[in-house]
Computed example of a mutant assay.
Amino acid sequence: MLKFVKGYMETIDGVATYPMISLLIFFVFFVILFWWVFTASKEYIKEVSELPIDKDNQ
């Protein structure tokens, strides 16, 4: 099975760009996620973290 996949992938032009695009998407996603985490307001984080507790009391 692996020989078939390797042989098939070698016939695709520019197949080496797909892993680079995937890595770029992964990196950009986590950079944006870290940026959001560090810039989120403390009030919003506190409000969201208390939602499960508030839901149980209702």
Rank of each mutant, 00 (worst) to 15 (best):
I53L: 14
I12L: 11
I12W: 13
E47H: 01
P19M: 02
K3W: 11
M1L: 11
I45P: 00
F30A: 12
D54S: 11
E50W: 13
K6Q: 08
K42Q: 06
S49K: 02
L24Y: 02
I21Q: 15
D56L: 07
G7C: 08
G14S: 06
I12G: 09
A40D: 08
V31I: 13
K46W: 01
D56W: 08
F26M: 15
F34I: 09
K42C: 01
A16S: 07
F4K: 06
E10V: 02
I21P: 03
K42T: 06
S22L: 13
D54R: 15
F30L: 04
M20Y: 09
S49R: 00
L33G: 01
W36K: 12
Q58T: 03
I32D: 11
Y44D: 12
D54F: 11
K6Y: 10
K42E: 08
A16W: 10
E50S: 14
D13W: 11
F30K: 07
Y44H: 01
K6A: 07
M9T: 14
S49E: 12
Q58K: 14
M9K: 05
I21W: 01
K3Y: 11
P52Q: 06
D56Y: 06
Q58D: 05
V37H: 05
N57M: 07
V48A: 08
L33Y: 08
D13Y: 14
V31T: 15
